[in-house]
Amino acid sequence: MSEITPEEHTQDTRPAKHSGERYFGWTSHPKAGLYTFIFVGVLAAGLALADFFVHRHEYIHLAEFKMFYALFGFAAFGGVVLSGWPLRKLLGRPENYYEPEEETDNG
């Protein structure tokens, strides 16, 4: 079976209202981003607050600080994403970066 998608696979012939919109249509709502932000923000605040009421058993001393996991998760994720900007400048190349010269050699 070829990896190139056959023409008949590329287009859905069903009506414009797609079945997936029943489950995920809300994600295309103009305010979806804001609502998600509020929902996750409230959830995060609740989890952070819970840290003050739940006694934790830690084997790593650093982790004993209140909200350690919350701050670490936010900082680690943010750091990784922000590192993408300089890394792409440093390591990003055009799509045909390797191929032309290797092709020349083979051809």
Partner: peptide
């Protein structure tokens, strides 16, 4: 609780960075 804190705050970082357009857009290339 600690696992949820780690993941939910990491997800919050994604949403915040995406909203302030600091998430690097996908770009063609190697």
């Amino acid at each position: 609780l600690t696992q949820m804190q780690l993941l939910v705050f990491a997800a919050l970082a994604f949403i915040v960075l995406n909203r302030v357009k600091l998430y690097p857009p996908e770009k063609r290339g190697v």
